[in-house]
């Protein structure tokens, strides 16, 4: 029930988007999203609504920190 899924936006029509993950497409409403999105962006879709935009810079930063933890020599 709380199963939000990260999906990529394929199409935007006013307040609705078509988003995709692993070949599955879904319509989602943008009504709940407080920030603008564009085709190609990733959003978390929950029960027919986009609830959050995934920030690519933050996603990269998290990965960078993770990699740093597990391979500290590389970062020296």
């Amino acid at each position: 029930m709380c199963l939000g899924v990260p999906m990529q936006i394929l199409e935007i029509n006013d307040d609705m988007v078509v988003a995709e993950i692993d070949g599955v497409q879904r319509e989602a409403s943008l009504m709940m999203l407080g920030e603008p999105v564009a085709v190609g962006d990733y959003v978390i879709v929950h029960a027919g609504f986009a609830i959050s935009r995934i920030d690519p810079a933050e996603a990269e930063e998290t990965l960078r920190i993770m990699r740093e933890i597990f391979n500290p020599e590389d970062m020296a």
Binding site: M31, D55, E58
Partner: peptide, 18 residues
Amino acid sequence: NQYSRAVSPQGNAKAQEL
């Protein structure tokens, strides 16, 4: 906040309003 790519400190104001 480990999940900063999707979660902000204040959250989604529009959803909170609803």
